[in-house]
Design a protein around this nucleic acid. Structure first.
Length: 669
DNA sequence: CATCGTATAGTTTTT
DNA sequence: CTATACGATG
C-alpha cells in the first residue's frame, strides 16, 4: 500500500464536518476517496452500508468499488454503496415508486426514447414547429436539471413560444407517467421531489446514508447538488472531491460554481488542496499548467511532479486527415518497439466520436488491436434497441414506446394505419397499446387481417412473458429470439452476412450479460429481472464487458470519456480550430470549457504526449484549409517540438507529392 | 403494407 | 460525401 502525502492523509482523516478536496489532475483523488472509505469503516466505526460514494460514470464507480474492496480485503465492504448519481437516483425511485406514480418494472427512457416521444407530442400538438425539436428537448432537460416544474416554467414564460414549450414539458412529463417510464433527468429530479414532499422517506435515506462522498464534484448540476444537500443535512458528513479545471459538462447543466456555493451553504467547510501530481512528467505537467493558466480561476493551484523532465510534447501536422491517422498508427507501432511497451499503454483521444471512424480503418489496416469505449455506443445499434424494446415491454406493459419499436420488428404485417387505429382506441380508453390489442372493443375498428395479426402477436407475447416470470427468464429470451427468427431478420436487412452475424453476436452478448447480471443477484430478489434490465438501460453492463475483455489494445475515446483515466502514451488528434475548440463552442464563446477539455486530455498522459493536426480536412465532400488550434500556441514553447509546420522545400515537396498521390487514388477509387 | 428511390440535412461532448 | 427520412410505387 502506498503512503499518503500529508494533504492526502488530512483529507482522509478529517471527518468532523463537510470537506472539499481540491484535487488537481493526477493528484491521487481516487486513492483519497477509497482510503477514506476504509478509514471510516476501520477507524471510525461506520458500517459499510451507511457509507455512499457517488460518481458520474459507471467506469469510475466500478474502479472505485474495486479499489475499496481491495483495501478492505473483501471483509467489510459488503453493503457499501458506490454508484453513479443516476444509479443512486434509480434506487431511491425504486424504493418509493408508487409515491411517484410509477409501478415496479418502470422503463428508463434514453435520449432517443425521449426524442421520439417529444416529437410525437409536438406533431400532435402542432403549436410548436417540429424543427424546434432539438432546441425543445435541450430546454426541457435544462429545466429538469434546474428543478423547474412545468408550472414554474409556465409562470415565468415571457412569450407564446415559451408558453407552448412549458405546455409541452407538462405533457411530456404526463406521458412518461402514463408509459410508466422515467427519463435520465428524472433519475435525479424525482428523488429530489420525493424527498421534498415525503419527509419520512428522506428520513429513511438519511438514516441509511450517514457518510456521503462525491467524486468529480465540479460536474454536479443543481438537481444533483440539491440531492446531495438533502441527503447530508443536518449532520453534514460529507466529503466532495473536485477540480474546477476539469469541469467539462457545463453543457449538461453542470455548475462548477457549486464548488463556491458549497462554501456559502456550509460555512464550516474545510478545504484541502492536493497539488502533487503522481502521474505525469514535468514537461507534460508544465504544458498543462501553462495551458490552463489562460483560464480565469476560482481556486488557484499549481501542480508539481517528481517524475523527471520527460520527453518534449510533439506536435505533428499532416497534410490531411488520412495521413494524420496513418501517422498516429505508425507512431504507435514505432513507440511500441522503441519503448518496449504494449498496445494497452496507448490512448488516442479526440473531440468527437466521428473522428474515430477513420482511425479505426487505419488501425485495422495495420492489424493493430484497439478498443473503443463510449463510442457511438452499443445502445444506438438497431439490434440492441430491438432487444431492449422486447425486454422493456416484458417487464413494463405500459411502455408504448417499446411496443411501437418492436410490434413490427420483424415484420408482422402490422403497419402504420393499423397502429393509428390502435393508438386512437388506446387513447380514448386511456390504456396502453399492449392492453388495447387484447380488447374486443378494438376488433370492430379493424379489418380481419390486422386484427388476426395483432392477436397472434398478443398470444405469443403473453407466452413469453409467462415464461419469463418463471424459473429461467434467459431461456424465455432465447425462445423469443428463436420465435421471431431474429437471425434471419438481421441477415435480410444487413448489407453483408458478416454484418448480420456481428449484429446477432451483439444481441447474444447482451443476453449473456443479462444472464451474468441475474446470476450475481440475490436469489430471493423478486425484481431481479427488473434490476438487471435497469442496469442495462443505465448502460452499465456492456461497458463492464468491454473492460473485462480489454487485453492488449489501444484505447480510443473522446476527451470527455477519458476523464479520470491515465495512459503512458497519449495522442490527441484533430488539434485544429473548429474541432478543438469546437466550432459551436467558438460561436457560443465557450472557449474556456474547450480549454479545460484540452487540459483534461493533456493531463491523461504519463510519459509522452503527441498532438496531431492536419493542414486540410474534408467536410461534406469539400476540402478546407485548417487553422491550428489556439491551444497549441498556449503551450510552453520550450517544451514542445513541432513537425510539419516549417515550409521547407523538402516538406512542401513531400506534401505536394502526397497530395497528388491522394488525388490519383481518388481518381481510381 | 413493404420496398425502393430521391432529397436533404448535417456541424459535440453523456448518464 | 453519407446517413437518414420521407414519399412514391408496386
Amino acid at each position: 500500500m502506498t503512503t499518503l502525502n500529508p494533504q492526502q492523509r488530512a483529507a482522509v482523516r478529517y471527518i468532523d464536518g463537510p470537506l472539499l478536496v481540491l484535487a488537481g489532475a493526477g493528484s491521487g483523488k481516487t486513492s483519497v476517496i477509497t482510503r477514506k472509505i476504509a478509514w471510516l469503516i476501520e477507524e471510525c466505526g461506520y458500517e459499510a452500508r451507511h457509507i455512499a460514494a457517488v460518481t458520474f460514470t459507471n467506469k469510475a464507480a466500478r474502479e472505485m468499488k474495486e479499489r475499496a474492496a481491495q483495501l478492505l480485503k473483501d471483509r467489510s465492504a459488503k453493503g457499501l454503496t458506490v454508484s453513479t448519481f443516476h444509479n443512486l437516483g434509480l434506487n431511491i425511485i425504486r424504493s418509493s415508486a408508487s409515491l411517484l406514480g410509477r409501478k415496479s418494472g418502470f422503463s428508463i427512457f434514453d435520449a432517443d426514447d425521449s426524442q421520439v416521444l417529444l416529437k410525437e407530442l409536438m406533431l400532435r400538438g402542432d403549436d410548436l414547429d417540429p424543427d424546434l425539436l432539438d432546441m425543445v428537448k435541450h430546454q426541457i432537460s435544462a429545466w429538469k436539471n434546474e428543478l423547474l416544474s412545468p408550472q414554474q416554467v409556465m409562470g415565468q414564460a415571457e412569450n407564446a413560444r415559451e408558453v407552448a414549450m412549458a405546455h409541452l414539458y407538462e405533457r411530456y412529463q404526463q406521458a412518461l407517467k402514463t408509459y410508466n417510464a422515467v427519463d435520465f433527468d428524472d433519475l435525479i429530479l424525482l428523488p429530489v421531489e420525493l424527498f421534498q414532499t415525503h419527509p419520512e422517506v428522506l428520513e429513511k435515506w438519511r438514516r441509511r446514508i450517514r457518510y456521503l462522498l462525491v467524486d468529480e464534484y465540479q460536474d454536479t448540476n443543481l438537481a444533483q447538488y440539491r440531492l446531495v444537500k438533502l441527503l447530508v443535512e443536518p449532520r453534514r458528513r460529507l466529503t466532495v472531491v473536485g477540480d474546477d479545471d476539469q469541469s467539462i459538462y457545463a453543457w449538461r447543466g453542470a455548475r462548477p460554481e457549486n464548488l463556491v456555493q458549497l462554501q456559502e451553504d456550509f460555512p464550516e467547510l474545510q478545504i484541502i488542496k492536493l497539488e502533487q501530481n503522481y502521474r505525469s512528467t514535468a514537461r507534460i505537467l508544465r504544458s498543462a499548467n501553462h495551458l490552463i493558466d489562460h483560464n480565469p480561476h476560482v481556486f488557484s493551484k499549481s501542480l508539481w511532479s517528481e517524475l523527471g523532465l520527460g520527453d518534449p510534447i510533439r506536435i505533428i501536422r499532416s497534410p490531411n486527415e488520412e495521413a494524420e491517422c496513418e501517422r498516429v498508427v505508425n507512431e504507435i507501432l514505432d513507440l511500441r518497439l522503441k519503448r518496449r511497451c504494449q498496445f494497452r499503454d496507448f490512448a488516442v483521444l479526440y473531440r468527437g466520436n466521428h473522428q474515430a471512424r477513420l482511425l479505426e480503418m487505419k488501425l485495422q489496416a495495420q492489424g493493430v488491436p484497439y478498443q473503443m469505449s463510449g463510442g457511438t455506443s452499443f445502445f444506438a445499434r438497431q439490434e440492441i434497441k430491438d432487444l431492449l424494446g422486447y425486454l422493456r415491454l416484458i417487464i413494463n406493459p405500459d411502455d408504448d414506446n417499446a411496443f411501437l419499436r418492436i410490434i413490427n420488428t420483424p415484420r408482422r404485417q402490422i403497419g402504420p394505419s393499423t397502429l393509428e387505429k390502435v393508438a386512437e382506441y388506446a387513447n380514448q380508453r386511456e390504456i396502453s397499446l399492449l392492453k388495447a390489442i387484447g380488447e374486443f372493443g378494438l376488433q370492430s375498428q379493424l379489418g380481419e387481417q390486422p386484427w388476426d395479426h395483432l392477436q397472434r402477436f398478443k398470444h405469443w407475447f403473453e407466452g413469453i412473458v409467462r415464461q419469463c416470470s418463471g424459473d429461467n427468464p434467459i431461456d424465455a429470451i432465447h425462445r423469443l429470439l428463436d420465435d421471431i427468427d431474429y437471425a434471419s431478420w438481421l441477415h435480410q436487412n444487413a448489407s453483408s452476412a458478416r454484418v448480420a452475424e456481428n449484429r446477432m453476436a451483439n444481441v447474444l452478448l447482451l443476453v449473456d450479460q443479462l444472464r451474468n447480471s441475474l446470476a450475481r443477484m440475490d436469489d430471493d430478489d423478486d425484481n431481479a429481472m427488473e434490476s438487471a434490465i435497469s442496469k442495462l438501460l443505465l448502460r452499465d453492463l456492456m461497458e463492464r464487458q468491454e473492460e473485462e475483455s480489454a487485453d492488449d489494445k489501444v484505447h480510443l475515446m473522446t476527451l470527455h470519456s477519458a476523464k479520470g483515466l491515465e495512459f503512458p502514451h497519449v495522442f490527441m488528434i484533430g488539434m485544429e480550430e473548429g474541432l478543438l475548440p469546437h466550432r459551436v463552442s467558438i460561436d457560443e464563446n465557450n472557449i474556456e470549457e474547450e480549454r479545460r477539455l484540452a487540459y483534461v486530455g493533456v493531463t491523461r498522459a504519463q510519459r509522452t504526449l503527441t498532438l496531431t493536426l492536419t493542414a486540410s480536412r474534408k467536410q461534406f465532400g469539400e476540402t478546407f484549409q485548417t487553422i491550428p488550434s489556439r491551444f497549441i500556441d498556449e503551450l510552453p514553447e520550450a517544451d514542445i517540438e513541432r513537425e510539419g509546420f516549417g515550409e521547407s522545400n523538402e516538406e512542401t515537396r513531400r506534401t505536394r507529392a502526397r497530395e497528388s498521390l491522394d488525388a490519383l487514388k481518388d481518381l481510381f477509387a
